[in-house]
Deep mutational scan, measured.
Amino acid sequence: MGFKLLSKLLVYLTASIMAIASPLAFSVDSSGEYPTVSEIPVGEVRLYQIADGVWSHIATQSFDGAVYPSNGLIVRDGDELLLIDTAWGAKNTAALLAEIEKQIGLPVTRAVSTHFHDDRVGGVDVLRAAGVATYASPSTRRLAEVEGNEIPTHSLEGLSSSGDAVRFGPVELFYPGAAHSTDNLIVYVPSASVLYGGCAIYELSRTSAGNVADADLAEWPTSIERIQQHYPEAQFVIPGHGLPGGLDLLKHTTNVVKAHTNRSVVE
C-alpha cells in the first residue's frame, strides 16, 4: 500500500471513529477524501466538511520552486461564519470567499490569524475590503508590521502568557507558548472536538522541520505538551499544512522538532 493511500485511509478511519463516538456532533463529509496538494491548482481553494458547521479550507501556493498546501478553518456561528487564517495570499483568499459563498452561503463576518507569517495573514486586506472584521493577538499584529505583512485590524486580548485561553464565538483560542513562531495560536472547536494546530503542528508525513527561522526550538516541545494537557479530548487535529489526523500529530511534531534540534547540535 502506497504512503499517500495509507495517509488518506488514516484520515478516513479517524473521521469514521469520530462519527461513531459522537453521532450528534459529527456529520463528516462523505463526498470524498481530504484534498491534497496535487489536486488543488494554485489560485483555487477546496472546502472539506469535518463536522456539522465545521470545515477546513485548503489552498496551495508556490514557494521556492515548489507547491505547498495550506489549511485553515471555518466555523459556523449562528447565521454567520468565523474564518481562521487566510488562504495564503490575496488571490487565494478572494477564491476562498467565493467558494464559501458557493458552498455554504453564509457571510464571513470575523477572521482570526493564528500567527504573523504570510500563509496566515496574506489576504487580510481582501477580507477587510469584503467587510470582514480581522483579528490577531497584539504580538501577531506587531510582528506582521515588522515583517511588512498585512496586519489584522483588531487585537485579541488575554493571550499574552503561555497557557492563556479565551473564548471567541464558537471557538476557544489558546496560546501554548512559542513553537513554530513566538505568537502562534491554537484554535479548538469544543462542539466538535476539532483542534486546529496551525503551523505549530505537523502532518504525519512530514519528517523535516522546514521553516524554523522564527521558531523557538527549545520551547516548542513544552508548548505541545500544554496543548495535549489542555485538549486531551480532541479527536480531529488539523495541521497548518497537509493531512489531518488525531492527537498523534502532536507527538510526531515533537519528535521531528527534537530530531532537528539534535542534528543542529551535532553539526
Rank of each mutant, 00 (worst) to 15 (best):
I227K: 03
P69C: 06
L247A: 15
M18C: 14
S181K: 02
L143V: 04
I100T: 06
I151L: 09
D119R: 02
S38M: 12
V37F: 15
P176M: 01
A178K: 13
L156Y: 01
D52N: 13
K91S: 15
G245K: 01
V108L: 08
I238R: 02
E267M: 10
I50V: 12
N211Y: 15
Y196V: 02
P35N: 07
G197T: 05
G123W: 04
K8P: 05
G43Y: 06
K91M: 14
E101I: 06
P221T: 11
V266L: 14
L217V: 13
G245A: 05
A66S: 14
P152W: 01
D214T: 07
H241L: 02
I50H: 07
G177E: 01
A218S: 12
R263M: 13
A90N: 09
A95G: 07
E150A: 05
V54M: 04
V187A: 13
L81C: 04
S62D: 15
S27V: 14
K8L: 07
L243R: 15
S139K: 13
I40K: 05
Y68W: 04
P190L: 07
M1Y: 05
V121W: 00
I201Y: 02
G123L: 04
V257Q: 03
L82S: 01
L204T: 09
Y34T: 08
I58A: 06
P23A: 12
T93L: 00
G122C: 07
A111W: 02
I238G: 02
A215V: 07
S161C: 07
A95W: 03
S223G: 04
E33V: 10
G131F: 02
G210L: 04
E150R: 01
P239N: 02
H230M: 14
S223Y: 03
D85W: 00
H260R: 12
V67N: 15
A213E: 10
I186K: 01
D214E: 09
V54R: 02
E172V: 06
L73H: 04
A179L: 00
S162T: 10
T109D: 05
E225Y: 09
T253Q: 02
D118C: 05
V42K: 08
V42P: 14
V11A: 11
S162K: 14
I104T: 03
V257A: 05
T134C: 04
D216R: 08
Y68E: 08
S223E: 02
I58Q: 06
G245F: 00
L96W: 00
D64L: 10
V112A: 06
V11Y: 08
A165Y: 14
G53F: 07
V11F: 10
A165N: 12
H117L: 00
A19D: 15
V37I: 13
K258W: 08
K258C: 07
V37D: 14
A218K: 13
I17A: 14
T134G: 01
P69G: 15
T14G: 05
S191N: 12
I84E: 00
T261D: 13
G131H: 07
G89D: 02
K251N: 12
A59N: 10
G158M: 07
